[in-house]
Write a protein that binds this DNA or RNA. Structure first.
Lengths: 244, 244
DNA sequence: TTGTTTGTTCGTTAATACCGCACATTGTGC
DNA sequence: GCACAATGTGCGGTATTAACGAACAAACAA
């Protein structure tokens, strides 16, 4: 583990909270000397990973990150995009495609519902696994060992009264998900938000991604949930073979 | 300039050509020892900047880059998105929003024309400045010194018979752009592709970005070009104040 | 003004991360 | 099926490297 590269990651992550930061603020956040921080930051600036506002002197994330970020999982995103179209057309609710990164899921692609009242997600967003439909779908199909590690590292929080915010309830929920073949998020993350999710499994049955259909609870009737679940599963099967 | 961080950039750039690479291929591309490369690559993998395909052992760009990339210029992209909508509605052709990065322009946001035959650009794409409308628009409004440096560092290539592929013709083109207030790309990059572009200038008259309207030459009549130019300029003025 | 921020630079030193070598494993041509 | 040639990976010595602390210029506040 190379020290300066790890520090690069820490510095870049500072911009999760604030979009513009000065050297001193960054150095405090990462706990490094100002001069050390300056060395790394100015290197990152020369490389385009950071960018300096000439007038204020503040730093922000640079275009090189944008460029590289758009190359990530490019084939997966093109494959998924057609599938998203047809799913939204059939189900009328916002469809998301996510992948796991460490203990979180990252929203990679989406297509929003045509309804005025709809679920609107942010591409690039990172959320813990236990409190989202997609996260639970992936979690449920992870090999036992990996699942245990992940749960052990989870910091549970009650987001609503329905959140599975303990190891016990989460584990029973995961069992249920495996048995029924899909995950249901009934206002576990946010009141009024219901979400149906299924994993995308590779040939070794490893969950490489997940797709979900999110809508206002008022429209997500049991009948619609059943339709969603069916559509999503057949879609996931198609995607599984294309994403290899 | 911190060595290992510069090497990180070199390694990540390897993935511009190929989406999946092994350690040995990477080490050859960047000219480093296999073990040195391995150290950096495995660090990057732990941090999520790279990702390893378990079955093949090959590495590819990781989700952390995607996550960070989506935070870049977030406010600029939200501001621009509404403007894009109305421009496409009015002009009926693909609208692009780009920013400069070093000697290139990077496509940050777009909204495509509703026509079946339309210009389709790729967000994240990086192109040299001299051969695109947006690039020339920015170039023309750079301070003289910066402009000189940039032109000196340009590697001219004839993409079509119309490309301004020499310093002399480019300079006279830039002069023309400043005098008329917008840039026109008449099949300079690709036959059949015409593009109108204007810079977005900050209060110091520095070009911080550019927007363009690209269409098939057959639809981009002189009259339409005039309309485009007007719409784009008023749009750019609005954007300039919002992007500050 | 004075005081306290800010971003930036420089030289020393200790720690760091590079290299070369060696190993395990896969896959491939003979 | 066997040897060969790739691959990805691990380990220690060493010299380069990058971190630190102090000090600077400049901007801003009191």
């Amino acid at each position: 583990m190379i020290q300066s590269i790890e520090r690069v990651a820490n510095i870049l992550n500072c911009f999760d909270q604030d979009s513009k930061l000065g050297i001193t603020q960054i150095s405090k956040k990462v706990g490094l000397t100002k001069s050390t921080t300056f060395g790394i930051v100015s290197t990152l600036t020369k490389l385009g990973f950071l960018e300096q506002d000439k007038s204020t002197g503040l730093y922000m994330l640079g275009l090189e990150l944008f460029r590289l970020g758009n190359k990530v999982d490019a084939e997966g995103r093109t494959v998924i995009s057609r599938e998203l179209e047809s799913l939204v057309e059939n189900l009328g609710e916002t469809i998301n495609y996510v992948r796991r990164q460490g203990n979180n899921v990252i929203y990679i692609a989406k297509k929003e519902s045509p309804h005025s009242m709809r679920i609107s997600t942010t591409v690039g967003m990172s959320l813990p696994m236990y409190c989202t439909g997609v996260g639970k779908a992936i979690l449920a199909y992870l090999p036992q060992e990996e699942q245990d590690e992940l749960i052990a590292a989870t910091d549970f929080r009650n987001l609503t009264d329905n959140t599975h915010a303990s190891e016990a309830t989460l584990r029973s929920e995961l069992k249920k998900i495996r048995s029924q073949g899909f995950a249901l998020d009934s206002e576990e993350m946010e009141y009024g938000l219901t979400c149906v999710a299924v994993p995308i499994l590779n040939p070794q049955n490893y969950p490489i991604a997940a797709i979900s259909c999110s809508g206002p609870s008022i429209r997500m009737t049991p009948e619609k949930i059943a339709v969603c679940q069916n559509e999503l599963r057949s879609s996931a099967a198609r995607l599984a073979s294309m994403l290899s």
